[in-house]
Nucleic acid binder design. Structure first.
Lengths: 225, 225
DNA sequence: GTTAATCCGTTGTTTTTACAACAGAAGGAG
DNA sequence: CTCCTTCTGTTGTAAAAACAACGGATTAAC
């Protein structure tokens, strides 16, 4: 595998942090790395497939699709360089519940999960570093999933909003603060109807619980109902 | 650290699978293991604490508590031997959002996260195995969180139930199948009201979508609305 | 056997949400 | 500027859920 432009995105990925560029080539070998290019409208893998490798987007954009019980496919996420995908299911040895697809075309770096975990005989220090980075990454993903459940699991939209805003407020550490979502995305995250979200936000502002303008919010009553 | 009765539960934990009993003692050393006993009604750590170590229950029972925005503490999980706790937040380097508490008293084995990840110089093969086990464990936890979001994220209770039952049906691989929850627990998992759950279940049975008795369910229409 | 506790379903009421349709605001492209 | 698109809020209606309260059934405790 040659180094070229598209491999430079590795540097920006937390998966490769604290790994020297000169060690990268050898490590890619340890990890059974292979690169693949996909044209427009290609399916990288389908839901139900067993996926023995994890992918990293080098260029282009990748969509994670999941079909619901009625068979409608909806987009769970858009993945751009240098994001990982499929690592959780590959590591867990589980079927992929999602389809991975590219609309625009994409270039992907695949890593063999078996080789990632079977640290090589000479146990290169950068391989250890890589596993540690991976472990931290999966753990952080776990934390964000927990936070989402904490929001979505609330009974009413008002409580969902409260949990969501409290989370972002404490994450940003200031008040007012901004959230990286527009209304539609926020409704999607909270699994509620967009217009209902607007409605409840307006109601909460009337009640003096919050103030907001676009995606800047301010909690005016720290103890919220 | 001496081996004794309470350490035997290690054998039953997936974290220690494929690690020979004779290697365990050395590995515990590598991992900075320490054992602690807690009396009745002890707090092991509080929400907001930074937790540099993960815990494993050796005996007794441990409760994971989270307080909601109104300040009410509710039980997220009951942890019994040989379950792990705190590993995700320790690995992610995040504050613990939960309080860990024991009502009955408990004995806990703590492992130092730094030492877990800084694989020792001689890179003992069982240490590698341990990290791999840990990685697989965190990834599997991630998968179950995804599944929960898949259920809880549905808009209506009916859809939540459908997602939940489909998940268990395909997990069990048979029809009818049983779920390891009573109604209250199932409602809790789906984040809905218990009586509303009963209501919708009855309605779905009338519609011929499902049949059930206690916690045995049968999907009668595989394509569900 | 009696009592108590737990589990599950039912009912009725009130609150909340989803959904659809529309309208105004903001911003970008030509 | 004008057109077009995107984003956001509003309204009304129908559907759904939460909540509280109760009753029967099953099981456990004594």
């Amino acid at each position: 595998m040659k180094n070229d432009m598209s491999m430079e995105v590795l540097q920006t990925s937390p998966l490769w942090s604290d790994i020297l560029p000169e060690d990268r080539k050898q490590l890619l070998g340890c990890l059974g790395a292979s690169r693949a290019e996909y044209g427009k409208k290609s399916t990288i893998w389908s839901s139900g497939d067993m996926v023995p490798r994890m992918g990293m987007v080098l260029s282009g954009e990748i969509k994670i699709l999941m079909e619901d019980l009625e068979g409608r496919q909806n987009v769970l996420a858009n993945i751009t360089p240098p994001d990982l995908f499929g690592e959780v299911f590959a590591l867990a040895g589980a079927q992929s519940p999602v389809t991975v697809y590219t609309e625009t075309g994409a270039e992907v770096l695949f890593l063999d999960v078996q080789k990632v975990t079977n640290i090589c005989r000479d146990s290169c220090s950068f391989h250890r570093q890589f596993v540690w980075n991976l472990l931290a990454l999966v753990a952080r993903k776990n934390v964000t999933l927990n936070q989402k459940i904490q929001c979505v699991g609330q009974r009413t939209t008002k409580e969902k909003i409260s949990a969501f805003l409290s989370m972002y407020q404490s994450r940003e550490g200031k008040n007012p603060f901004t959230v990286p979502f527009n209304r539609a995305e926020m409704a999607d995250y909270l699994c509620v109807d967009r217009s209902a979200l607007s409605q409840v936000l307006a109601q909460m502002q009337e009640e003096g619980l919050i103030e907001y303008h676009k995606n800047e919010f301010r909690l005016t009553h720290l103890a919220m109902t």
